[in-house]
Design a protein around this nucleic acid. Structure first.
Lengths: 324, 324
DNA sequence: CCCTATAATGCTCAGTTTGAGCAAAAGGAG
DNA sequence: CTCCTTTTGCTCAAACTGAGCATTATAGGG
């Protein structure tokens, strides 16, 4: 605790995962990168002028998206492992860390810089809304061949891990395990980043429709962290509403919840949940463009933010259980 | 992003909240500080030799406590607000951030440096195990006088916030809101740190038995963050077992859960929960020193770490509801 | 104007989980 | 052998969940 004059000083980057939902599509704000995979998360250095970490992030993201960030939450702070590999010339003398944030915005208007992308373009295996996605089968097949014959204990453990994280057989699909699944695929060499980090060429059998779009550095891992966190958080905190316009229908709310969690929800139970939690109140108006019976418009009751306990949206899939 | 050569570089501190439980007392590792309040959390600079952030922390904490850290989790990364105030001469040119970690150890043997302290010495109002603690009444009284007469809207909001965070009246006591409660007390000027940060003298009516022991800088806030996280986490991840010896009885496990969550648990239901989750298995031996019927010794089933869903210890108070 | 398709909304019901408590079992102390 | 203490086994009602049937309110086509 005494005085230490010769500590190393490091560069600090603030990286943002900015999320919005547009008509059932969960979107993440991306920018062009000059490096290998061309897609990156928006990121900027911590500047001396910034009052605090969060306000620093807030100001420059709002400048770029032109929309107020409804919600900002710190995700994780990463050491420089990946960064060191990106810039090998800088060497280990110059450390860097990146502090990552999750931000939610209510609008998907085109940002000044960068563009919105469907987050399932990066994680095709995560979208279970319309049943088993096409990417799942080939992935599981390759995972199995990576695990190998169940004879050796290592292989057995690999197989068991794949079974549990991907919900194979009688293991339930847990939509929150986005990061675990990505890390398993990384270890198994099924995403191109694994080879970029090793400095080798990814095998040609990897294709983006199955493995998802790659991102610069460890940005896809950061995005996976954000999705995991968000899928968990909507269950116990009313963050879902940060993604909604001021007035909306319960169906639209459900569509948003499904977009994030990637599983279909039981409509009646979803409404029951929202109703009994007292999360919304009717505006008095109705939406006529439903295609069927008009839907009542509601608004979020900001007051409940404090109330608790657990004013979240517990998502429960229509068909709980496992996917093949 | 492009090359930025003139970013500011900052100092990075790694701060640890090391937790252990000894016979129903939750303990936190503290060290002596030379600054104003004499108590601090162990903390060290990020050094160039450190492979990763976590391993850096791990190595020097293990060196100090002489016990392996069973579990390490990143808590939060703080900007330099508090630090700037600690060392005003350094000015805003030299930023500093501290990355904080929560660590759990199974033993409470005296560490080489520092000492274990009952964490309720810092948060006397958080221990509801034996009913309403003595510190609660005077605190609530002062909170009310801080909020003022309910006439103005500001006062009304303050009162409502106090009601919800402290579970006054018909609001339920939520043991996880440790940080919110501390921040409310800070704003209300009921903890000495509030005055230290402002550079003024704390009023003499503040006494440690009610306001808890103060700590250096924002360390008590960090500890509150750690306790909040831990109280939440034991409900959905089996971290509780990181604090236990290899073999233990269910009562000892319950004592530990109660120590952390600060509320009394219903014994039979607690056992039912542990049993049906398959979290432990019998060793075959019994503990005879119970004072009554001998208790079977059990051990944690490490395998379940992967299994899920939610292999945690849902704590549910004996008497749910509110405290006066 | 009636019929049909479509979605919103209302309600029921069985299975499970949760909170609470009674009672028996198995030791030690006097 | 009896009392005291703690562990352990078991029951029961209330609340919660997952699932599905039924009704209502619009639009569009005959």
């Amino acid at each position: 605790m005494g005085s230490r004059d010769r500590e190393s000083r490091v560069r600090v980057d603030l990286t943002a995962v900015v999320i919005a939902v547009r008509e059932g599509t969960p979107c993440v704000l991306t920018v062009e990168a000059s490096a290998q995979p061309a897609i990156a998360l928006p990121s900027g250095p911590l500047e001396p002028g910034h009052q605090s970490l969060q306000s620093g992030l807030r100001s420059w993201v709002e400048r770029q998206t032109q929309h107020p960030l409804g919600y900002v939450e710190q995700l994780y702070t990463f050491g420089d492992r990946a960064t060191a590999q990106l810039e090998p010339d800088v060497a280990s003398q110059q450390k860097a860390i990146s502090i990552t944030y999750l931000a939610l915005v209510a609008s998907t208007d085109p940002p000044r810089q960068g563009r919105w992308r469907n987050w399932y373009d990066f994680f095709p295996w995560e979208d279970m809304r319309a049943g088993v996605p096409a990417a799942r089968d080939p992935l599981l097949k390759r995972l199995k061949s990576w695990a190998g014959k169940p004879g050796r204990p290592t292989n057995k453990r690999r197989l068991e891990r794949a079974r549990l994280t991907f919900g194979i057989g009688d293991a339930p699909w847990d939509e929150e395990r986005v990061l675990e699944r990505y890390e398993l695929l990384y270890e198994a060499g099924l995403v191109p980043e694994a080879f970029v980090d090793r400095g080798t060429q990814p095998p040609s059998r990897i294709n983006n429709a199955v493995s998802g779009l790659p991102m610069v550095s460890d940005h896809r891992r950061i995005l996976a962290t954000a999705i995991s966190r968000l899928r968990a958080k909507i269950k116990y905190r009313p963050v879902l509403f940060e993604l909604m316009p001021p007035a909306f229908t319960l169906s639209e709310l459900q569509k948003t919840a499904e977009a994030l969690s990637g599983i279909p929800l039981h409509k009646q139970n979803f409404r029951r949940l929202i109703a009994q939690q007292g999360l919304v109140e009717e505006t008095g108006e109705v939406a006529m463009d439903t295609g069927g019976r008009p839907a009542k418009l509601v608004r979020f009751r900001r007051e409940v933010t404090l109330e608790r306990p657990a004013p979240g949206v517990r998502v429960s899939a229509t068909r709980r259980g496992s996917y093949p």
